[in-house]
Nucleic acid binder design. Structure first.
Lengths: 121, 121
DNA sequence: TGAACATATGAACGATTGTTCATATGATGG
DNA sequence: CCATCATATGAACAATCGTTCATATGTTCA
């Protein structure tokens, strides 16, 4: 998005180009919403985080169990949990020394299962 | 995913840990499916590609019009279209000098609108 | 209070990503 | 065939990302 906006006709086809620009400006969600949307999908775009979410589909789990279940270091899991929490996909509850994580809401399930459908074709 | 798997009890809580490992191995999709899933979401995790898809929600559009509508260089758009096409999210149709792109199927719409719902809260 | 355990976090590193620039490929019309 | 337009692509670069390592914070129990 470096280039300045210039309403130049493209492809020498003024009659296609003009209504297109109108459609785009009418239908495109605002810039910050598009950014947030991309940001959300970016979270799902890592298989460690996906695996964490799949475990949380089944149960509320502490960091240490997540690490051992997914066979990764506590640190790596903790870093990823922070990202998931910041994006409101996951919530944390402390119980003594341990912190238990669970899904923040059910959108996550829906989004991921839609993705799975596409992948499984 | 560097660490070797060792079935060590975690958090000194054998009674929690054991069934968890079972759940994980029973419910977790196979490794390659999780990878594909993450790979799919990675595609949506860029606002340029999201914007391209939003335009394609409305119409079949040639590269050059996409570039001017989204105010980006033809090269940048073309690179991104290649990624979208490789992931089967978009298909291409040549008509003379121009190449028109459109959505490959309707999963894309569903996935993105699910994402939007989450973001708009 | 101090040792032991669970979790969080900052810095550093290699790996991946998106854009730009230059150029190649492909199609059309003269 | 050649010039021109539309698109594709490879190399290069800065920016971002995920993991590791070392260490800090927070909690429990003796």
């Amino acid at each position: 998005m470096k280039q300045d906006f210039t309403p130049i006709e493209c492809c020498d086809q003024v009659e296609i180009h003009e209504p297109l620009l109108k459609i785009v400006s009418d239908q495109l969600p605002p810039e910050d919403e598009l950014y947030d949307l991309a940001e959300l999908f970016k979270i799902f775009g890592d298989s460690t985080r996906i695996r964490i979410l799949f475990v949380l589909f089944e149960a509320e789990v502490c960091v240490c169990d997540l690490a051992s279940a997914l066979n990764m270091t506590q640190s790596a899991i903790s870093h990823q949990l922070r990202i998931l929490k910041q994006s409101q996909l996951v919530k944390a509850r402390r119980e003594g020394k341990q912190v238990f994580y669970s899904l923040a809401d059910d959108h996550v399930r829906t989004i991921i299962s839609q993705g799975l459908e596409h992948v499984e074709e």
